[in-house]
Amino acid sequence: MTERIRVLVVDDHPLFRQGVVHSLGTDPGLLVVGETDSGEEALKLAQELLPDVVLLDISMPGWNGLMTAERITTACPVVNIVMLTVSEEKDKLIAAFKAGARAYVLKGVSARELTQVVRTAASGEVYVSPSLAAEMLVTLTQSKAPDPLQELTDREREILGLIGSGLTNREIGERIFLSEKTIKHYVTNILQKLQVRSRVEAALLAAQHKRTER
Rank of each mutant, 00 (worst) to 15 (best):
E156Q: 14
V200S: 12
L137M: 14
K210T: 09
M136T: 07
A96E: 13
T212R: 13
L50W: 01
L204Y: 09
D91I: 12
R197L: 11
H13N: 11
E88G: 04
V126K: 09
Y127L: 11
K210D: 04
Q208K: 05
Y127M: 07
A202I: 13
D52R: 04
V200R: 15
L50K: 14
T153D: 10
S110H: 04
D91V: 05
N64W: 06
R214A: 15
A101S: 11
W63D: 03
A145Q: 10
T36V: 09
L205N: 06
M67K: 10
E70F: 11
H209Q: 15
P130L: 13
F97L: 08
V196K: 00
V187D: 09
N169L: 07
Y127C: 10
E113M: 11
Q142I: 09
A46R: 00
R6A: 09
L31K: 01
R155D: 06
L56A: 09
Q150M: 10
D57P: 03
R102T: 10
L31F: 06
E156Y: 04
E171N: 03
L137F: 06
A99E: 04
V128R: 06
K210H: 07
P77Q: 14
T141W: 02
P14Y: 02
A202Q: 02
V117Y: 01
P61E: 15
S87I: 01
V200D: 14
L50R: 11
V105N: 09
V79E: 04
E41T: 02
L8D: 08
V32F: 02
E48H: 03
E89Y: 08
E151W: 02
L30P: 00
V105D: 11
A42E: 12
L31Q: 09
N64Y: 02
T168Y: 08
I72N: 02
H13W: 07
G19F: 03
V109G: 03
V118R: 03
L49V: 01
A46D: 06
N80R: 15
E88H: 00
T153C: 03
A206F: 10
L66Q: 03
V187W: 06
L204A: 06
L160T: 09
L84N: 08
Q150R: 02
S179E: 12
P28F: 05
R17K: 14
M136Y: 03
K107H: 12
L167Q: 07
E201Y: 04
G62R: 09
I172F: 04
G62E: 13
T188E: 13
R197P: 00
E40A: 12
K90L: 10
R112D: 15
I94W: 03
D91S: 15
R211C: 03
E125H: 03
D37V: 06
L56T: 04
V82S: 05
L194A: 10
V117L: 11
L93S: 07
L205D: 05
A99N: 06
Q18S: 14
A121S: 04
T73N: 07
D154N: 08
T115S: 15
E213G: 10
G39T: 05
V10P: 02
E180G: 08
L137G: 01
I190T: 12
T68A: 15
K181D: 07
R211N: 01
L106Q: 11
T182W: 03
P77N: 00
D147S: 10
G65V: 02
I159F: 05
V78E: 14
S143M: 11
A206W: 08
L56M: 11
S165I: 00
L106I: 11
A203D: 07
R211Q: 14
G164S: 12
T139P: 00
P28V: 03
Q208E: 15
G39Y: 14
I58F: 01
V21C: 14
